[in-house]
Amino acid sequence: MTGTDQQAQVKNTVSLLDVSGVKTGYDDLQILWDLSINVQRGERVIVLGANGAGKTTLLKTLVGLLPVWEGAIHLNGEPVQTLRIDKRISRGISYLSEVGVVAGLTIEENLRIGGYHLASGAARSQMAVMYDSFPDLKVRRRETASSLSGGQRKMLAVAKALMSRPRLVIMDEPSAGLSPLFVTEVISMVNRFHDDGISFLIAEQNVKFLEIADRVYVLDAGRMIFTGTVEELHRNDALERAYFGVYG
């Protein structure tokens, strides 16, 4: 086995994303307490939690919008917790915030900033890929994102997040503000790009996303209270009542 083969094998054995013992918060207010999660290549991982559980704080910390107080974040084995957001994105993380798009820019401009760190040729070819995947966006590419409906905006947000050619897409409540029909559409989009080899870490309250989850974390008051498969989640009476008692 050559050195390159060995390196490739090592890379394949480490997690795509490995978060260990992360503590963080806003100013002096600690929100996350010793949080550890990981995402393997090709996985769709759902972080379930109620409002205020710390889901958005977790995602913002992973992408670099909030600093890590303690703990480590590794992407593909490389520590990234001290890197700026743009550096993390160029290493394969992409973040879809709850807003997801810049409303004042056109659809094409949103896609351009989604692929901001790509060279112009690569950005053009990736934009062509996105237009093939989302033909509606191509038709309306000169229109501002503010002219789109909620569902169309989410479609644009997904395309924008995929413009950077990510290995891992981190999504913050992609179902927020969407009708059940568009939630189904977003789930099918996730499946489509998962089939292309992209991993997903999705923070959600909507248990419909569990249909596609390979693993689930449950976050409560800044602490991880459950890790396992969807079947294991169903076998946990307290969580079953908390999440499926209301929504199921």
Binding site: V101, V102, G104, I113, Y116
Partner: peptide, 23 residues
């Protein structure tokens, strides 16, 4: 220009621009 569009993104929504990987 790419930098100009990034500038307008910051003008419209600084947080979203940062989340998009714009320095």
């Amino acid at each position: 220009t790419k930098m100009g569009i990034a500038t307008r993104a910051i003008m419209a929504n600084r947080d979203e621009a940062a989340a998009s990987g714009i320095d």
